[in-house]
């Protein structure tokens, strides 16, 4: 590896840690500023019990001291116990949710990439044909439709009206609809990205040379053009994962998928402080790492790009 690259990676890692720290700090103070606490409930506990609970979890200490205690714990990867699901550790709950969410996210990302690239290539190859126009119309619709509408439509059509798939994400087969919902936007985006960058590449001299030599259309696309046309797609890899992570918050809620997104949303409603922080850190780190990986990949694929 060249020294420039190494320097760049180290710089980016430091920046990533800084970013996560900022996220931790902002979340921590906003979370404590929001009214209500983890022990707020319709039936209020007596002040003595409230006090004892706060003492038990260190919530009686001054906010700054809680903040530094938390930072010290986080550096050692200690996320503490959940304040709401008593007896369970935050890390276990996150891990549990991750198992489902990762399955959802990885399959959605994988399908989005494969289908998006194939559709995009075909659209470029058959430029201005009916198929091209059809693909463009459909993908435009998907790109402009928010996931909560898409999800609700799919739910009504395939679960409630026709019973093809279960409405409950926890049931077997329940992940199909959430995966489709989550996949459609990045898939459409990738299709359009591939198509336009493919058209750009197809205009290049070396493609013209290939054509002049009589290479078939399919081979030109998949053998020569695709590799270069994929560079913008790779840059989209990071934002796509960010989309999938944030999108899963909504999608998991709609389909009642027992994933981390749903756990995150309910931890906020419950003011489960340790759980909110733990999930925030894990999700923020995931996005930061994915962006880093995507930037490095970008460089690997296209040596013309200089990193600074």
């Amino acid at each position: 590896m060249n020294p420039n690259m190494l320097k760049y990676i180290i710089k980016r890692i430091i920046l990533a840690i800084f970013t996560v720290w900022v996220v931790i700090t902002v979340t921590f103070f906003i979370m404590h500023a929001v009214p209500g606490g983890p022990f707020t409930s319709e039936k209020a506990v007596s002040p003595a019990v409230q006090k004892a609970m706060e003492a038990k979890y260190g919530l009686d200490k001054p906010l700054m001291s809680q903040y530094f205690t938390y930072l010290t714990d986080v550096i050692q990867f200690k996320f503490g116990p959940s304040l709401k699901q008593r007896g369970r550790m935050v890390i276990d709950i996150i891990f549990d949710g991750m198992k489902t969410s990762a399955k959802l996210g990885v399959i959605a990302a994988f399908l989005a990439l494969i289908i998006g690239i194939v559709l995009g290539s075909f659209a470029a190859l058959l430029r201005n044909s009916f198929l091209d126009r059809l693909i463009m119309v459909i993908t435009t619709a998907f790109v402009s439709m928010p996931s909560f509408i898409m999800g609700s439509l799919l739910l009504v059509a395939f679960a409630i009206k026709t019973h093809i798939f279960p409405a409950n994400g926890a049931a077997s087969g329940g992940l199909v609809l959430p995966i489709i919902t989550l996949m459609l936007y990045p898939m459409s985006y990738i299709t359009r990205l591939t198509r336009s960058s493919m058209l750009d590449v197809l205009g290049q001299d070396y493609i013209r040379t290939a054509r002049a030599k009589g290479v078939s259309g399919g081979r030109i696309i998949f053998g020569h053009a695709l590799k270069n046309a994929l560079i913008p797609v790779i840059t989209y890899f990071g934002p796509m994962l960010a989309y999938i992570v944030t999108g899963s918050l909504v999608v998991e809620q709609i389909f009642a998928v027992p994933g981390i997104g749903r756990a995150y949303v309910s931890s906020i409603t419950n003011r489960d402080y340790t759980m909110i922080m733990g999930t925030t850190i894990v999700l923020a780190s995931l996005i930061v790492i994915m962006n880093l990986v995507s930037d490095i990949l970008y460089k690997v694929v296209d040596p013309r790009i200089t990193l600074e």
Binding site: S41, V45, A48, V49, A52, M53, E54, A55, K56, D60
Partner: peptide, 27 residues
């Protein structure tokens, strides 16, 4: 006091409950 449960007060009619939950200002 260690466990500090929401529904511990269901024992408030049992003798001794008030003494257990007699806390000072620091809890």
């Amino acid at each position: 006091v260690d466990l500090a449960t929401d529904y511990g007060y269901m024992f408030e009619i049992v003798d001794g409950y008030d003494e257990v939950w007699d806390l000072d200002d620091d809890g």
